[in-house]
């Protein structure tokens, strides 16, 4: 009894230490966002600003049209996540449950595309978009990101783990493939789908290079583009950058708190490390 209490205490202390370590960057971000410029890089570090500069936030907002960028980020993230979920469910089902000629070869080719670094694809993709006349449109920001081989792979593996007997039973009851996918497979794969969706949301929310390459109008740009405005060749306005970052990261934090139990479950069940 005594021993278990002791070991529990040790575990809690270790966990708390880990939690503190993970929280430090956030605390530093928020503390820096309230500092005067000369305290940002002060040695020894200043944890609590001597004077709380809330005006950093209003100042940061003036540097770029963050309200517009916010709306764009929400639109792009939402639509591309929903789009990716739909294509992923359909493709993963086809690759795991349907039998058609050349299925495994097509899947192997798809997996092969994951080997190509995205930097190499940047210019060809841009040329394709310009041929479609999509440069500087929402389509350019969204459509190329509505399918992900990694997500298909992840979900296919999950689908393969679901017993085939379920589909036989459903067919005996007169259920179509599509209905089976929608009412049986997809709900069963909820943890995997949530993982896919969350990874997508995070990537989409943080994407910088693609949005800046495919858009020219300020009206179409997203939050990370706004954050780049604080960096110049001769220095970085950390206090303003951190103020803006705190605001940009806020929706993600809320999302995390709401979805926390699914994220943990999703990561645990698919054996995927964040």
């Amino acid at each position: 009894m005594v021993r278990s209490a002791l070991s529990r205490t040790t575990v809690y202390i270790l966990l708390s230490l880990g939690a503190v370590l993970m929280l430090l960057p956030f605390v530093w971000m928020i503390s820096t966002s309230l500092k005067a410029p000369n305290e940002v890089m002060a040695m020894p570090p200043v944890w609590v600003p001597t004077e709380w500069k809330f005006e950093n936030f209003t100042e940061a907002m003036k540097v770029a049209p963050f309200d517009r960028y916010f709306i764009n980020s929400v639109i792009v993230t939402l639509v591309s996540t929903i789009g990716e979920l739909l294509t992923t469910i359909l493709a993963a089902y086809a690759f795991s449950r349907l039998n058609f000629y050349g299925r495994d070869i097509v899947f192997a080719i798809l997996l092969g595309t994951m080997m190509v670094p995205s930097e190499v694809l940047l210019i060809p993709n841009f040329v394709t978009l310009s041929n479609l006349g999509w440069v500087d449109t929402y389509s350019a920001l969204i459509v190329p990101w509505t399918a992900s081989v990694f997500a298909i792979f992840l979900l296919r593996q999950y689908f393969l783990g679901i017993p085939k007997e379920l589909s036989f039973a459903a067919k005996v009851d007169g259920c179509s493939e599509f209905k089976f996918l929608w009412y049986v497979m997809a709900p069963l794969a909820k943890p995997a789908l949530i993982t896919v969706a969350l990874l997508k949301v995070i990537n989409s929310w943080n994407a910088f290079l693609w949005p800046i390459i495919v858009t020219n109008s300020q009206e179409l740009r997203t939050l990370p583009v706004g954050l780049s405005a604080f960096t110049t060749e001769a220095g970085i306005k950390y206090e303003l950058l951190m103020a803006a970052s705190s605001m940009v990261i806020f929706p993600m934090l809320i999302l995390f708190f709401i979805m926390q139990k699914y994220i943990v479950a999703g990561v645990a069940r698919t054996g995927l490390k964040g």
Binding site: L122, I123, F126, V127, N131, V135, I213, V225, S228
Partner: peptide, 16 residues
């Protein structure tokens, strides 16, 4: 964006 972004964009824009 930055000087690097601008350069990359010019390279892409030239091709397209």
């Amino acid at each position: 964006g930055s000087y690097d972004d601008l350069e990359q964009k010019i390279m892409a824009g030239a091709k397209a």
